[in-house]
Design a protein around this nucleic acid. Structure first.
Lengths: 134, 134
DNA sequence: GTAGGGGTTCCAGTTGCTGGAAGCTCCAGG
DNA sequence: CCTGGAGCTTCCAGCAACTGGAACCCCTAC
C-alpha cells in the first residue's frame, strides 16, 4: 500500500509519515521498483498505535519508549500507566489555568463596556484593555 | 537600566528580551559605551505590555499588530476585542477537548484494573492500554 | 504525446524561546 | 596591579511536531 492511501486511511499527512520515518520512529519500509514506499498491515498497525498514543497525549519520545520496551519483550504497560498518570495531572492543571484565563478575559470584556475615560483613570499608553489586565 | 535588571524585574529571561529585539518586536535600545543595552522606563512598559499580552494568550504576532496599530495612531482595542473573543472560543474548545481526554484516560485506567487476558480478547500487539483506546 | 495525480528528496520555516561557547567589561578584594 | 567572578556581548544550534515548497520521477488515461 502506498503512502497516500495509508495517510488517507489513518487521517495523517504523508509528510508526517515520512517525518516519523526520518526520526526512526517507524522503520524504513521496502520500496516498489519505482521507489515508492510500500506499507504492510503491520506498518499501518504501528502508525495507528502512534496516532492513538499522540491522541492520548504521549509525546513522540514517550511513544518511542513504549515501542522500544515492546521490542525488548518487556511489558510497557507500567510505563504507560506512569505516563498516563502524569498526563492526567498535567491536564487537570492545564484546565485550571485555562479556566482562570477565561475568567480573566471575561472580566476584561466587562471592562470594555465601561466608559473608557473614567475620571481619575490614566490615559492608556497602548490599549486600555490590555493595560487593565496588568 | 541593564538587561539583567530588566529581566529580574519583569520575570523574563534576558535571552527572551534579546530575542524580542531580534524579531523587531521591540526596538533596538541605545547602548552604553561598553556596548551594554540600556533600557528606559518606556522600554520596560513595552516589555510589560508584551508580557501581559502573552499571559492573555496573544501570540507575538498579534501583539505586534497591536503595537503597530498603536504606532499608527489607531485605537487597537477593537482588534484586541476580536482577538480576545476568538481566544475565548478557542479556550472553551480546548477545555472541552482536555476534559474529554481526561475522561478517556480515566476509563483507560479503569481497564488497567481488569484482567489482561479476558477470554476472547486478542493478545495485545504493543500495549493493551493503548490499544484499548483505539 | 501530454496532462494529471501520485510519488521522491532535500531544504527551510513554523512558535517562542533556551542553551552553550567564546569573548568582552566592570568591580571588589588581596 | 592582578585576579576572580558576575554580567554582558554575539552567534549558532536545538527544542516539538510537523508542514510547505521546489524540483524532479513514475504511471495511467485520453
Amino acid at each position: 500500500m502506498r503512502i497516500g492511501q495509508v495517510a488517507d486511511e489513518l487521517g495523517i499527512n504523508t509528510k508526517t509519515i515520512r517525518y516519523y520515518e526520518s526520526i526512526e520512529l517507524i522503520p524504513a519500509v521496502p520500496r516498489t521498483p519505482a521507489g515508492y514506499r510500500d506499507y504492510t498491515d503491520e506498518d499501518i498497525d504501528r502508525l495507528e498505535f502512534i496516532r492513538t498514543g499522540r491522541r492520548l497525549g504521549l509525546s513522540l519520545d514517550e511513544i518511542r519508549q513504549v515501542l522500544h520496551l515492546r521490542e525488548r519483550g518487556e511489558q510497557p504497560c507500567d510505563y504507560v500507566l506512569d505516563v498516563v498518570h502524569r498526563q492526567l495531572r498535567d491536564i487537570d492543571r492545564h484546565i485550571r489555568e485555562l479556566a482562570a484565563l477565561r475568567d480573566e478575559l471575561h472580566r476584561l470584556l466587562d471592562t470594555a463596556h465601561q466608559p473608557s475615560e473614567a475620571p481619575g483613570n490614566p490615559a492608556p499608553r497602548y490599549c486600555r484593555l490590555v493595560e487593565a489586565a496588568s
